[in-house]
């Protein structure tokens, strides 16, 4: 096995262990509902903020020129706002960049 392949396996293993520990630990330790208001609020915002941060500006820099990505972003936001669901929104974003 090359050094490169060896490193990739370590990255993958770290991601698997970390991600699944996050899933398991609360199940093992939390006996009742979390009562701290700040912690609950923080955990409430985390998923939305992290996805938003990863979407912009990455979506615009993923296309050769910013315009197709920007238009896909705007139309994708409108489609998601209208609650079209996971698959349609993803398909619309792909189609726009493919056609432009």
């Amino acid at each position: 096995m090359t050094m490169e392949q060896h490193r990739i396996l370590i990255y993958i293993l770290l991601a698997i262990v970390t991600t699944n520990l996050i899933r398991v630990l609360p199940m093992v330790f939390i006996k009742g509902p979390i009562s701290n208001r700040f912690v609950r609020s923080f955990l409430y915002y985390v998923p939305y903020v992290t996805l938003a941060v990863m979407t912009f500006p990455d979506m615009i820099s993923a296309t050769p020129t910013p315009w197709p990505g920007l238009i896909a972003l705007v139309v994708g936001i409108i489609a998601a706002w209208l609650r079209l669901g996971l698959l349609p929104v993803a398909a619309i974003c792909c189609l726009i960049v493919y056609l432009l």
């Binding site: 979506m59 972003l73 792909c94």
Partner: peptide, 27 residues
């Protein structure tokens, strides 16, 4: 085509965080 398909991941992200943003002004 690869560039176009790479948009599906971002589309899925949008489908996850935009509806709650519509429901909750703070989000």
């Amino acid at each position: 085509m690869v560039t176009a398909l790479s948009m599906s991941l971002y589309g899925m992200f949008l489908a996850v965080f935009i509806p709650p943003a519509r429901r909750d002004r703070n989000v």
